[in-house]
Design a protein around this nucleic acid. Structure first.
Lengths: 155, 155
DNA sequence: AGTACCTCATTACTTTGGCTAAGTAAAATG
DNA sequence: CATTTTACTTAGCCAAAGTAATGAGGTACT
């Protein structure tokens, strides 16, 4: 395959600044979480559950790019907080099914409101064009996050 | 003309998917660091130092959104690896000045090459339009990372 | 000048959030 | 029916960042 190496330099620069921006944003998000009692990842799991419906821990781990044991712990935490139900799979008794509770739905709604407030504040700092850019970038970043990694696939 | 609150719903959705994509990307980056011996944050600090020139630990901490003690640790680590020099401030003896060494410059160059290779692999997964989108989004994310936070009340 | 306060960096300790390795139970395969 | 595979879990570890307290150097106010 022929690589458009003309754009590689630009892409490298973009990835460079993307990487550091993402790192700093992550740290900010950790501090400014909308719900004090939930880690960003736990929040993200709830979001995935909301979007995709009930899933097994393994599937969930794959989607979140976390190892299965970590997901076990996260799900356990969410369960003790009453945000998630953990039930046996109807057909395969090895598997389990994680589904969100009504309480989780309420919490997501609450968090959505808070996030809107936060956004309204932040909106002053970005122009409409910049928001457009972010809106366009979001799905691409999602894709990038799930893209199979060529050199990191030794298994 | 048109107030931005019309687009708040869309922005909220964008931020939602931005947030989870960023989280997952961060975890991927942690695994796939170009240089095994340096954490992503250490790498980022080096980059900042490269872009902005010599800075004090405090300033650096603020730029990276890290607490001062963490930056002290990071700088110390970088110093023992010979990537950074730590000197007293000429005028204010409370302060110190961190500057990168020639070795750091060489390492950044090396890492740049590796990143290009990684990119070339990944380029197959994204279209040119998607790359354009990312290139456009990078500076906006940078800006977002450094935007003053209204509700982040100083404790 | 001296005292009170403030700022920057550091030290010591804790928390968090992920990982690997090993274990158990259930299903699939021969 | 024995073996291997799959799905989740348990246990223990480690790295990165945070908080609280310390110290040393400046600043301001009478």
């Amino acid at each position: 395959m022929n690589m458009p190496d003309l754009s590689q330099g630009e892409n490298a620069a973009a990835v460079n600044s993307l990487r550091s921006a993402i790192l700093r944003l992550t740290r900010r998000l950790r501090h400014q979480r909308v719900d004090e009692s939930l880690s960003p990842t736990e929040m993200s799991v709830l979001g995935t559950l909301f979007r995709c419906g009930p899933l097994g821990p393994g599937e969930l781990a794959r989607k979140e790019h976390v190892q299965p044991p970590s997901m076990t712990r996260i799900v356990a935490m969410l369960e003790t907080k009453g945000l998630v139900r953990l039930e046996p799979h109807p057909e395969d008794r090895r598997q389990k099914v994680v589904s969100q509770t009504e309480q989780a739905e309420a919490m997501l709604e609450e968090s959505r409101r808070k996030r809107n407030a936060w956004l309204a504040e932040l909106a002053g700092g970005l122009s409409e064009e910049e928001w457009d850019t972010l809106r366009a970038a979001a799905p691409v970043l999602e894709k990038l996050a799930h893209l199979p990694m060529p050199e990191a696939a030794p298994r």
